[in-house]
């Protein structure tokens, strides 16, 4: 029987399948298990951070079928059968993504807590808009709060990564 059709019983475990950073994972979750907790506690992918847990701060941003979402606002059962990309899936083997390199080069990081979410939102932007304007870059990270940097270096880094990727193509 297909488990996620649901059913009664608090504490019931549901078998779900997630493709995370290209790897298929079968995990058991409860109805109230949040996607962010599966990623962090069951798959040990702790790059995804928990901040406000109410969809405001964006530190838990992951790609769900290529689109940025707050993983603190998604039930794990709802993600069954879907593809997830976390910040751990952004680098290609040992090669940092252009965005990650640009964040380092532009000192777009202070405490680092918002960085995984920023990288994910920016990655989604560059995937569909390879040559963003500054406005588009700011809009793309509007759901990612940074309390250290004032965003200037982050926006610089995103625009620089777009330039780098332009050269690579």
């Amino acid at each position: 029987m297909d488990d996620t059709q649901g059913g009664a019983g608090h504490g019931k475990q549901y078998a779900i399948q997630l493709v995370v950073n290209g790897d298929l994972h079968s995990v058991f979750v409860k109805a109230n298990t949040l996607l962010v907790n599966v990623l962090r506690n069951q798959l040990n992918l702790t790059g995804t951070k928990k901040g406000c847990e109410l969809g405001d701060c964006g530190s838990c941003t992951v790609l769900l079928d290529g689109k940025p979402v707050n993983s603190c606002m998604v039930l794990a059962v709802e993600a069954d059968g879907h593809e997830i990309t976390t910040v751990e899936g952004i680098a290609q083997n040992d090669q940092l993504d252009a965005l990650q390199q640009a964040f380092i080069d532009h000192a777009a990081i202070q405490c680092g807590f918002c960085t995984p979410g920023m990288i994910i939102s920016a990655r989604a932007l560059l995937s569909h808009t390879p040559h963003p304007t500054e406005k588009e870059a700011r809009e793309a990270i509007a759901g990612n709060l940074c309390r250290c940097t004032g965003y200037v270096h982050i926006v610089d880094a995103i625009l620089a990564a777009a330039e780098t990727e332009k050269k690579e193509v």
């Binding site: 996620t4 059709q5 649901g6 059913g7 009664a8 019983g9 608090h10 504490g11 019931k12 549901y14 409860k30 109805a31 109230n32 949040l34 847990e53 109410l54 603190c72 039930l75 059962v77």
Partner: peptide
């Protein structure tokens, strides 16, 4: 933040 437990259904129609 804790999300209290509940039953979950995902009907098809």
């Amino acid at each position: 933040m804790y999300l209290p437990d509940f039953d979950y259904y995902a009907p098809e129609t």
